[in-house]
Design a protein around this nucleic acid. Sequence first.
DNA 1: TTGTAAGCGTTATCAA
DNA 2: TTGATAACGCTTACAA
Lengths: 333, 333
Amino acid sequence: MSTIYEVSKLAGVSSATVSRVMNNSSRVSPNTRDKVLKAMDELGFRPNSIAQSLASKRSNSIGVVISELQGSYYGMLLNEIELTLRSAKKHVMIAAGHADAAIEEDSIEFLLQRSCDALILFVEAVSDQYLRDLKKRGVLFTLINRQVEGLETQCLSIDNYQGGYMACQKMIEVGHQSIAYISGPEWKLDAMERLRGHRQALKDHKLPIHDELFFTGDYTEYSGEHGFEQLYKSGIKFSGLVCGNDEMAAGAIMAARHLGLALPDDLSVIGFDDAYFSRFIYPRLTTIKNPIKEIGTVSANRVLHSTYGLKSKNLEYDNQPLLIARDSLTAPK
Amino acid sequence: MSTIYEVSKLAGVSSATVSRVMNNSSRVSPNTRDKVLKAMDELGFRPNSIAQSLASKRSNSIGVVISELQGSYYGMLLNEIELTLRSAKKHVMIAAGHADAAIEEDSIEFLLQRSCDALILFVEAVSDQYLRDLKKRGVLFTLINRQVEGLETQCLSIDNYQGGYMACQKMIEVGHQSIAYISGPEWKLDAMERLRGHRQALKDHKLPIHDELFFTGDYTEYSGEHGFEQLYKSGIKFSGLVCGNDEMAAGAIMAARHLGLALPDDLSVIGFDDAYFSRFIYPRLTTIKNPIKEIGTVSANRVLHSTYGLKSKNLEYDNQPLLIARDSLTAPK
DNA sequence: TTGTAAGCGTTATCAA
DNA sequence: TTGATAACGCTTACAA
């Protein structure tokens, strides 16, 4: 690998000038610029970005910590982020947090140590205070799927409460009177918001709330399967089931079928997220769309904006959920 | 952020000594080591890894280029890679290649420019020659899901031919005589290998090969849907369908149901990969397991081994596919 | 066992 | 518009 110094020799200029043409940082006469470009080309010169980082105190890399690297939800998000950052010539470093506070903190520190200029954080276990302290330390970041007091301007999330409300309301509109709910884990804020919206819709429509019709899962399909079996055993009849996410809906549907129910006639189901696979569940899953792609793009653009002053049009997003009507919802028999 | 120099002053030693205790590179007396450690602690010292990289010509980061960031297949792979690399304290930089030669090459150069010590490549469009040249340039890398002549020791892939053979053979064993096939795109090597295995099994069992029973898809569920419709229209009856991957199987199953077929009685289906969602398709999909997790772990370990001399036990893997029997396969009526 | 000092390949300040 | 040259924070011969 050739260096800036070799280029400067070949072009007959100083290394400072070479640096200038690389960065367009200050005026260089067209003549010398040409000479430099030619020399670079001839040597196949590629700037060493490590050296650039050290000297400029800017690494042009952005760290992303995300709960999991697998799962359609995270995949879509990561994809959008990479696309956006990449087109701005920024490197993306990733680390998984696995929804564990220690691992999440470690991931963040790990990325910071590597001189990431900014972070995009999808963290669920780390405390609000830790995040506020991060800001105090001068770290630039955006926060996905979470609202933290004091960090409002850098938080991006959808209105989970509204989504939960919509799903339940739709069930009621179609005619269901007895509706079961399988929620995500209690320690996940989005799960609790979705649940809160559901309960409120029930209340607003003067429907009774039976504790036996609520099951707390953990967002996995296994908990959806297990949850459905529990609800079914409870003895209280229900014709509708709302799930905190699509994975659990998929699991619940499997369980319902094993128990001999015909879907959607015996049971209507609504999921949440509009995950990739929800079209391939049978019956095709009616669900609440989570505009995760948009959130990915916007979070990346905001980081680009606040860190490098890059202007972008996609700095705002619509945090309203949307009902995607497919086949798993029908009127009760 | 404090520097090594400040630590050295506080500890009353030279900066070289501080560096030594950081890296355990050469003996330091327990006494001075303690002093240094104490000073580090007091200052909250964190080494600047950019500076370390520049000086040591080693960035401790590994680049991963993968076709897509979304999809269960890639997600699982990425997850294993991150886990393995992370536990070895290496940073992982990612870039998506989108199965486009220009983007893939750009991704590779992009990561190299960032001084990645090694690469893990899941690239599909770039030429074999480019990859051989990469090796000549001295770049360390492993190659996933691909076999390139001259790079045998750094390629990891399963036996797709054998997998294709197994699927077809199983169909035949169960009693199917007329079997349709929806393959992945022609330019994907794994897709062609799977198809080749399928045809060979047909031949070995003396079953006729009808061109009308073959459809070339592109690994998406849409092409599975479309493909099934085409095959169905062909007029040639078939009771079994083998798909080049699970996505297409999912699409084909959707299409079959829309056309009024009862599964698995009217149609048996086998997929490939054992994707995350294949358990949640109805009927639960019988498929060929692709040991992608194992491949992820092994590829990361190999890179760690060849790049940093780290020894590891997981340097070998079993490239034999495995049939996962679920509910989508039954004897023909 | 420890220190000195020359890099590593850039950027950026100051003069010219 | 250009050139010297001092950082940037660390590693690593080479000496002591």
